[in-house]
Design a protein around this nucleic acid. Structure first.
Lengths: 214, 214
DNA sequence: GTATCATTGAAACACTTGTTTGAATCAGGT
DNA sequence: ACCTGATTCAAACAAGTGTTTCAATGATAC
């Protein structure tokens, strides 16, 4: 029950990740974390320095893994030139689910954590996440531009944020068993959105967004 | 500076909304709120009962207004039968920006608050928000189904969540001046995504989502 | 003017928080 | 065996939290 054989440091990491995702950073207390992990209260400050530093360690561990998995799958997609749009999007979406393959809810837990980080603007965690993300996002934006050479790269980059929002919120929200199907749907949905040209109607909507058109 | 002439209750409501959005529910303290609002500390518990109840009051005020605005604009779109898909999506997206028209950042602040509520699963606030939303979401899902009679209603409902995620995250994240343009882009993006049929390629992606396709 | 109610004010309350301390325990090397 | 450094432990610390209390003040009606 107390994950015998695993180091104190890892027990804290796993338990804190779960409780931070479930309850949020400021609601989950060190006493609750250490008690459920079966370690002493002071162990957190000994191994990590502070509660904040613990959070950063948790975040870095998963985000590095997620980004590496995305990069790796993107490289495969980029072996064809120009790359297939769906394969590029797959490389972005699917690794977010890869963690769930083990059977437990780790992947979804991290998406919940990611969603909290997005919500926490003006925190160093938010800044750190955006910076960690910047690399990957730029590479994916470039790949999408190559797949859709006729589209404006700046607009494509903007629309990548739509995909991030849709992915993060639905993955954090949905039941575990549905995530795989939803990911496939999202790729199809996003690919069509990215391919859609700017029509006269939608251009007018951009210019006069609040006009009631009866 | 202290919004002279406005009632104590409203001063608390406005200040707390701002601080909750900026810092989060558990980080913003009643002492900070009451001090910045220029009211006594005990005023919160007198007028609202508790910090939680204050949060609910804040949320209800804006969400009711947002939902009402969406419903009203949806009714206009539904005057044509079948409704135009872009008009239905406009009715969903545009009211989220309507608050920003006054010049201040109220609209974006509320989207940040909404994002926090999404991240806070397993809280009564999250439950309350989902319930308040359920009505509106069902009506919009029905309207979209009417606009796209050939598509599976259940799948359309699923994809409405994509739009919610994209809208909430980008609106909370983006600079204020960009929100109007982004909203127009989102309508175009989402309309194309909803209209896209399920191809053999994407169907395969749904069946074998983690397969590396080189 | 006075009684009645709602509202404000300063202070205290009970409790929890993250962090620190210093002794006890453990492991590995010589 | 003995030393050394890393790790664990129980206890305390200082600070901050939401909430409550009760007297002071304000407004309103009779």
């Amino acid at each position: 029950m107390f994950q015998l054989g695993v180091s104190t440091r890892d027990r804290i990491l796993d338990t804190a990740e779960r409780l931070f995702a479930e309850q949020g950073f400021h609601v989950a207390t060190l006493r609750q974390i250490t008690q459920e992990a079966g370690v002493n209260l002071a162990a957190v400050n000994y191994h990590f320095g502070s509660k904040q530093a613990l959070m950063r360690a948790i975040f870095k561990r998963r985000l590095d893994a997620l980004n590496a998995a995305r990069m790796k799958q993107l490289d495969i997609a980029l072996q064809t030139d120009p790359p297939e749009l769906e394969e590029v999007l797959d490389a972005f979406v699917q690794p977010a689910l890869a963690f769930t393959r083990g059977g437990d809810a780790e992947g979804q837990r991290f998406m919940q954590l990611l969603l909290r980080a997005f919500a926490d603007r003006d925190t160093d965690l938010h800044q750190a996440m955006r910076q960690e993300y910047a690399h990957v996002m730029r590479r994916f934006a470039d790949a999408i531009s190559h797949a859709l050479p006729d589209a404006d790269p700046e607009r494509l980059r903007q629309q990548l944020d739509f995909i991030v929002g849709a992915l993060t919120l639905t993955m954090a929200e949905s039941a575990l068993k549905d995530t795989r199907i939803i990911a496939g749907e999202l790729v199809r949905f996003a690919a069509a959105g990215l391919r859609a040209p700017v029509t006269e109607e939608t251009a007018r909507a951009v210019r006069f967004p609040l006009e009631a058109r009866s």
